[in-house]
C-alpha cells in the first residue's frame, strides 16, 4: 500500500516531466524545421504569451484567460477623440474581401487584406463566405451604433484576443495586419447603413 502511494506521485511526476520535454522538443522543431523567406522571418516561429497559452485542445482556466485578455486589451489603440467614423464602406468591402498579405510570397507588409470573408458572412449576397466565425450579416442594423457596441467592435478588430484570449481571429491592429485607417474602413463596412452588410 505504502509502495503504491509512493509510486503514484512518481508516475505523475514522470508523465508531467515527459510532457514538458515534448513541449520543448516541439518548440525547438518549430524553429529548426523552418527557414526565413522574405518577410516571413524566423521570429514568427516563436510563440508569444497568448499563442502559447492557447495551443492545446482545452483553453486555460478562467483566471488565466482574464489575465491574458486584460493584457491584450491594454494594447488596443483607440481612435483620437473617440472618433470612430470617417471610414469608407467601399474601401472596407475591398479589405474584407481580400485575403492577401503577410505570406512569404508577399513583397511588402502594406496593403494587406483583412480576410474577413474567409471566416465570416457579411454581405448577404456573397455566397462564398466562410463559416468558422459567426455571421456578421446586418451587423450595424441589428446591433445599432451605441458607443458601447462601436467601441467593442473597434477593440475586437484591433485585438480580438482582448475579448477572448483564445479566439481564432487574428489581432489585426496589434499584429500590424491592418492599419488604423484600414480598420476605420472596415468599421464603416460594418456600421454604415449604406453598406451592403446592412441591406436586407
Amino acid at each position: 500500500m505504502k509502495k503504491a502511494l509512493l509510486l503514484a506521485p512518481l508516475a505523475l511526476f514522470a508523465s508531467v516531466a515527459m510532457a514538458s520535454d515534448l513541449d520543448a522538443k516541439v518548440a525547438e522543431m518549430m524553429k529548426s524545421s523552418f527557414k526565413a523567406n522574405g518577410i516571413a522571418s524566423l521570429d514568427r516561429q516563436v510563440q508569444d504569451e497568448v499563442q502559447k497559452a492557447c495551443s492545446s485542445p482545452t483553453q486555460p482556466d478562467a483566471a488565466t484567460m482574464k489575465r491574458l485578455e486584460e493584457a491584450q486589451l491594454a494594447t488596443v489603440k483607440w481612435p483620437e477623440a473617440g472618433n470612430y467614423t470617417g471610414g469608407d464602406w467601399q474601401e472596407g468591402a475591398r479589405i474584407a474581401i481580400s485575403g492577401r498579405g503577410l505570406t512569404w510570397t508577399d513583397k511588402t507588409p502594406d496593403n494587406n487584406g483583412g480576410g474577413c470573408y474567409n471566416c465570416h458572412a457579411m454581405d448577404p449576397k456573397e455566397v462564398s463566405a466562410g463559416t468558422i466565425g459567426p455571421s456578421l450579416e446586418g451587423y450595424g442594423r441589428i446591433r445599432g451604433n451605441s458607443e458601447e457596441i462601436v467601441k467593442y467592435t473597434w477593440g475586437k478588430l484591433w485585438n480580438a484576443k482582448a475579448y477572448n484570449a483564445c479566439s481564432d481571429m487574428p489581432r489585426n491592429g496589434f499584429g500590424k495586419i491592418l492599419t488604423e485607417t484600414q480598420i476605420r474602413h472596415v468599421m464603416a463596412y460594418l456600421f454604415d447603413p449604406a453598406s451592403p452588410v446592412n441591406k436586407q
Binding site: L22, D23, K25, V26, M29, M30, A40, R44, Q45, V46, Q47, V50, Q51, K52, C54, S55, S56, P57, L102, K161, D168, P170, R171, G175, I177
Partner: peptide, 15 residues
C-alpha cells in the same frame, strides 16, 4: 509531436 504541432499557434495571424 505531430499532435502538439497541430495545436501550435504561431506566426503573424496566431493560426
Amino acid at each position: 509531436m505531430g499532435e502538439k504541432t497541430f495545436y501550435y499557434r504561431t506566426g503573424a495571424m496566431d493560426f
